[in-house]
Design a protein around this nucleic acid. Sequence first.
DNA 1: GTGACCATTCAGCCAATTCTCAGGAATCGC
DNA 2: GCGATTCCTGAGAATTGGCTGAATGGTCAC
Lengths: 232, 232
Amino acid sequence: MENVKVLIVDDEPNIRDLLSTSLRFAGFSVHAVANGADAVNAAEKGAPDIILLDVMLPDMNGFSVTKKLRSMGINAPVLFLTARDETADKVTGLTVGGDDYMTKPFSLDEIVARINAILRRTKQVETEDSILEVGEIKINQDAHEVFANGESVDLSPTEYKLLRFLMSNPNRVLTKAQILDHVWEYDFNGEMGIVESYVSYLRKKLDPLTTEPLIQTKRGVGYMYKSVKNAS
Amino acid sequence: MENVKVLIVDDEPNIRDLLSTSLRFAGFSVHAVANGADAVNAAEKGAPDIILLDVMLPDMNGFSVTKKLRSMGINAPVLFLTARDETADKVTGLTVGGDDYMTKPFSLDEIVARINAILRRTKQVETEDSILEVGEIKINQDAHEVFANGESVDLSPTEYKLLRFLMSNPNRVLTKAQILDHVWEYDFNGEMGIVESYVSYLRKKLDPLTTEPLIQTKRGVGYMYKSVKNAS
DNA sequence: GTGACCATTCAGCCAATTCTCAGGAATCGC
DNA sequence: GCGATTCCTGAGAATTGGCTGAATGGTCAC
């Protein structure tokens, strides 16, 4: 997944910065613009592999932008960003082709996962596998299924996202703040105690099925998903 | 079904884009034009395997276009696109040989199914099988018949399309938005609750005939058609 | 026109999930 | 050892998501 180019289109500077830094850190090559006209220009010159497109833009809406892009022969898949309450009647037509959509507010881990899922489906570039296996745990990201030593484990959406984040950073201590920032929606306003709660939920479900505890507590620092092999 | 060439002829840019991206994603090689004259040119040069032809075009109607094509020795089957209210006789005269017609608005899953059916009938290229069998359910797409462990099941048109879409994406979670976009007509403007209703209908008809529930609910994500084998 | 489907919406119900909190357990520095 | 800090976990309240039966209106065949 080397050198995947992402074009971000959003008029809110906060979101733009958040996405830019986060995706750049995730290894993507990022270019960000604030409106539809710039998006069309940037897409023409930059040949992005995927486009993150806010549906509500100051100059034109997301659909006009995609229409324009398609008519120019630019077929990069689009991940639409929409506000939670506009989904009702605006959803139609959004997931055509390899496209997908996410509601704001989203979580950073989730958006990286979605981008990888789309790239995987459209196969335009080399990307990560749908199966994420570290140590005794295996996640099938297409099916949203989790297995511990072959046994199927039932996780709630948040439990699933937390485990995926931990597993994609094995043998590295993650602070509760980092976890909160990546797994929870960016406008989450609660306490970090919730991370403790969810780690506890995960342990209760996973530890009975594994030979040793998987999530280690680094007191005063954070949590770490331990796996013997595969440090990469 | 490698490298099947589809020529799309429609003067509405929306429809053209929708079909282009959708069919391209479905694995077809697509070329789209806006009027009859261009269609004749493109067909001559591109040698398409099938032509999607809007009956009402600005310069000439679909009938003239096909006549012209046939006189030039181009015998690719035609799938006519007509508005719902155009009379049936007008259309029936058009469909000779392997041709067929669909009324607008259509659903994306349906049009892919029709294209495959036509290619299957005309046998000009390698294409998908008429029988779709996943797990305990078997669908005969030519006859629109559904069997659960050999027992015949009676489904309404929408139930049938929903099941076919789920079965053609086994072991992958599909969001309600994706289902809506593929199974329902492209101008559908209702709520996603209708997907829940139809999943409920399907389960009521299918579950009594199978050893285990086939359509799994992934709470907060979507639905998944489960089949034991093929975990990859 | 009438009756049989069929598509669609809706509301009430139930269950899963999220989140907070507080008491108790573990760990650390001294 | 012992107090202070950090973490764990069970309980509970509020919310959300999903299921289903019933109601509505449309279409089609006869």
